[in-house]
């Protein structure tokens, strides 16, 4: 393509998504996105995590050409989202948070509409739709109106629509929000399946740490418009120590000595005591447990109970975004408004 002759863009072709100091300031002065720089490799599943109002939606809207950034650059599939918006649109699939399928059309008609919106030639359209309906297991219900579909089926239809034109980058905005746990696992399977089958890059936003942990090669945590940390879920978790040991002592006498002794052990990353309960972040828990017993009995301390767990992405998320409750910055009102409209419409 012509774009290759521009050295700046050649650079960004190396990545499925790349942003350089991307910022968005709304007309009311709110700085929703603040100097974000991210790089997503081809074929990568990238998770974009953050609390409500952190700037996830704004970022996704810029990357999908729905909003223009205030400053900075963003490239998707090698194209500039501002100057080459049309090329970007040809190369992305966008599955929005809320279901966008037309309820009164059948599943198949919805996909036909999606195919036409994305200029899929008529002769390949039928086959593409049949294929994708098989992937999301909706072939047997394709002739029924979407009104009769469950939430999970609608989501699958949405995802199918986003994949129909074989995009290079698929944006999945909260793909399992509001779905029950069985459906959520199923959707994760579909995401993995399509990722393997179509070898596309996926940009995923989610509230569910478990989802990011299961699916993503890399994640970024964003808060107040800024990227707090980027890395693979595994690395981020092990930065907190691979394992957590929590044990309870029979008395506080000499407990300070025990903690002092334990700090000397090289595999102990951090240790904190709260009354009789001690929490130890460590890199090798199974080897540490015998040592704890050893040192405790040397000091005459009895261990009442002990447990070994792994740090979760929740721990990572909370350590970067803090534990205080969030104001839902207007999001709540919008949801309420939607509910209201749904009622009027029904």
């Amino acid at each position: 393509m012509v774009a290759i002759y521009n050295p700046e863009i050649t650079c960004s072709l190396l990545h499925a998504v790349e942003t350089q100091s991307l910022s968005k300031i709304y007309s009311n002065g709110l700085k929703a996105v603040d100097e974000i720089s991210i790089k997503i490799e081809h074929g990568e599943i990238f998770g974009f995590l953050g609390p409500n109002g952190a700037g996830k939606s704004t970022t996704i809207m810029i990357l999908t050409t729905l909003l223009k950034p205030t400053s900075g650059k963003a490239y998707v599939a090698g194209f500039d989202v501002v100057t080459q918006a049309k090329n970007v649109r040809q190369n992305i699939g966008y599955v929005q948070q809320d279901s966008t399928v037309d309820e009164y059309l059948t599943g198949r008609e919805n996909l036909e509409l999606q195919a036409k919106l994305n200029h899929i030639p008529r002769d390949t359209m039928e086959k593409r739709i049949n294929d994708i309906l098989e992937v999301v297991e909706l072939a047997d219900r394709q002739r029924e109106s979407v009104v009769t579909y469950s939430g999970g089926m609608r989501k699958r239809l949405d995802i199918a629509g986003g994949l129909l034109h074989r995009p290079k980058v698929l944006f999945l905005d909260e793909p399992t929000l509001g779905l029950d746990i069985q459906t959520r696992y199923k959707i994760w399977d579909y995401i993995k399946k399509i990722h393997n089958e179509f070898s596309i890059s996926i940009f995923l936003t989610t509230h569910y740490m478990e989802e990011a942990d299961k699916l993503c090669d890399n994640i970024s945590i964003i808060d107040h418009g800024k990227i707090k940390v980027t890395g693979s879920p595994k690395n981020l978790k092990s930065s907190l120590g691979n394992e957590v040991i929590i044990f309870e002592m029979d008395s506080e006498v000499k407990s300070e000595n025990l903690i002092f002794e334990m700090r000397k052990i090289p595999t102990v990353k951090d240790i904190s005591a709260d009354g009789l309960e001690v929490t130890v972040f460590t890199t090798s828990g199974d080897q540490l447990i015998p040592q704890i017993f050893q040192r405790a009995s040397d000091l005459g301390i009895k261990i009442e109970s002990i447990s070994l767990t792994k740090p979760t992405l929740d721990d990572v998320f909370l350590s970067y975004t803090g534990r205080e409750l969030r104001e839902d910055n207007g999001k709540y009102d919008r949801k309420k408004e939607r509910e209201r409209i749904r009622k009027i419409r029904a």
Binding site: Y94, T100, Q114, L117, H119, R338
Partner: peptide, 15 residues
């Protein structure tokens, strides 16, 4: 409706 329910965004992010 289309802007509320996302169809508009779907159309706007298509070519």
């Amino acid at each position: 409706w289309d802007r509320r329910y996302g169809f508009m965004n779907k159309a706007l992010t298509s070519p």
